[in-house]
Each structure stands twice: as C-alpha cells, then as structure tokens.
Computed example of a mutant assay.
Amino acid sequence: MENHASNISEAPNGNDPVIEHAGTCALCDAPNVALAESHIIPKFVYDWLKKTSPTPYVRYSSDVNSRQQDGPKEHLLCFACEQKLSALEKTLASRLFKKIANYQKQKSIINVNSNLRLAVLSIFWRTILTARNRESSRTNEDNEAMGIFIESTKTQILNNSCNTKIYLAPFFGDSPYYNFDAEKTYFLERGIGCQDIRFMDDPHRFFAVFKLPFMFFYIFSEGWPESELVNSSELLDGEINVEEIKDMPDILREYIEMVHEDFEKLKKTMNQSSLDRISNDMRKSNVITGAHKSLGRSRPKPR
C-alpha cells in the first residue's frame, strides 16, 4: 500500500479546512477523516509485475484493452490505518513474496510470524469488504456469513492477533505445477487477484481465496470435513519449507481450473490493436523478462 499523508486543503474565506475524500475509516471507524486511496492488492505486487514485464503497464479483467500503471484502489483507510497495513505488507513482501515470486532463484524456506499472517488476513478483509456490495447471486444467509467474516477479520487486524486459519498453495520449483497442464503456467505465475468468497450449502459454508504471483491463499469457514482439508497447507508461525508442499484441496484445484478458463476467455476479448501492442512489446524487449520466462514455460514440452 502507498504512503498517503493527508487530503486536507485550505478552504476559501477562512472557513474550516476542506477534507478531500472524507469519510469513516473502514478499519478503525474514525469518522470524517481524510481517506487514503488504498490498494486492494498491495502495491508492491503490481510493482513486481511491471518490473518483470517488458512494459510498465498492467491490465484489469474489467477492461483488458486498457493499459493501467497501477492496481485497483479505493478510498478506505485513515492515514494511521494505512500506515499500519503498509508496515504489515513489508513483512509479507520480505518474508514470503520475494522468496517465492523470484525468477532468479526461489527460496524454499520461509519464516512465518504473526505480522505476516496479519498482512495476508488484511488482504482477505479488503478484497471481501470491497466486493460486499457488488451485484451477486448471494443469499441472505450468505450475506450474513460474509458480514460476520468481515467483522471478525477487522477485529483481528485491530487487535494485532490473527486467529483465522490461512492456507498457502505456492508454485515452487519446475513447472508444470500440481499436475496442472503446462498451458496454465503463465497464469499461475503471474496472475493477480482472483479474489472470491464462494458459498456452499448442506451445510452452509464458504471458501475464501485470492491470488498473488506464484501463490494462492485460501480460508475455509467452519463446516468443512477433514477429508476436504487434508491436502491443505496451513500458514503457521515458524519455519515452512514450501518445497514440501506437493498438493492442494480439490476445491482450490477446481477454482483454479475455473478462473483459468475465465482468463483464457478474457484474452479472446482483446482487440487486435492490444494484441499487436503486447506482441511488439515482447519482441522489442532487449532483455529476457519474467514474463518471457513464464510464457516459455506455458508451452507444452516436446516429447
């Protein structure tokens, strides 16, 4: 997330200062404060994506024909809460992300602490909070469970104590990963977002998920049998060897298949001008970027 000092400007005629983007902080509930333009997915992730690409641009699924220079943001947090989450994200970047999302040499050992787990939890909180009022087919029971989850994660972040079980599926070592087709490699290594909270019935339960490059994070609500959790790898405090993570639960595998299919459909909606621009950018690059490497790994290996 980016530092954001304030949005206060002088008012004409000596009146009280005008606060731009004033509102209630979504985290601490402070009223009538200047709200920072907060990244839903941390800014360092989009910086990495641009750094490992031939061009300093990203594209959103909402408009694949438009080039952007940053990830989606919303006015959510006061300055103090923005700084709080920014500090947590530095831990996530240094202790986990930069070790796995690394084209030079991935590092298998990560050291997890409470701040790292809180950073991941804060991304779950933001992605679900900002999706809450979007049009969906959720039932009233779904919305109630979603609201409880949002309030629970918010309280944990405020109290600096993560008691939610968070799971990690890293893409480490040689592709293809987890027996997925090689053609999914580019998406698995470079996709961002894919955030969702998916509800099931009998019993009523949910599965929350989001993606960063080279990894997925996911959460199960109560009501899931052990047989469906057995292949999950929990993000626990202490040392984790991600090279030993060899499997994932069926629901995550099915979700990846679905979002990759959507990813392929979106690519087909790109106009010829966008396709030509991407092709030219890749061809003109005078260095082999991470994007080139992921693209090469996505091609089926000769038999």
Rank of each mutant, 00 (worst) to 15 (best):
G191F: 01
W224P: 12
G191I: 07
I256A: 09
Y255L: 00
I166L: 15
F217G: 15
N241E: 06
F220H: 07
D196T: 09
F172N: 04
M258Y: 04
F216V: 04
F206K: 06
C162H: 12
F214G: 05
Y186E: 10
Y186C: 06
A169Y: 09
N241W: 06
K165Y: 05
S227I: 14
E189V: 02
E222A: 00
P213L: 05
V209L: 06
D181G: 15
A182L: 07
L229E: 13
G238Q: 08
E189H: 14
R198H: 15
I256L: 03
F217E: 07
N159H: 07
L235D: 07
G191Y: 05
I245L: 10
D174H: 08
A208M: 14
Y178A: 04
R205G: 02
I192E: 03
K184W: 06
P176M: 06
E234K: 11
D247R: 09
K211F: 00
I166G: 14
S232K: 10
R253P: 02
F210M: 02
D250N: 04
L158G: 05
I166D: 14
A182K: 08
Y186N: 07
G173E: 03
F217H: 12
D181M: 10
Y167T: 11
L188V: 11
G223S: 14
N179R: 10
Q195K: 02
K165N: 12
M200C: 05
P225S: 05
N231M: 01
H260S: 05
F171H: 13
L188Y: 11
E243K: 10
P203W: 01
Y255C: 00
K246M: 09
P249R: 00
E257G: 02
S232H: 12
Y218Q: 11
N231Q: 09
S175V: 09
K184A: 06
E254L: 14
N159I: 02
E244M: 10
G193A: 01
C162Q: 12
Y186K: 03
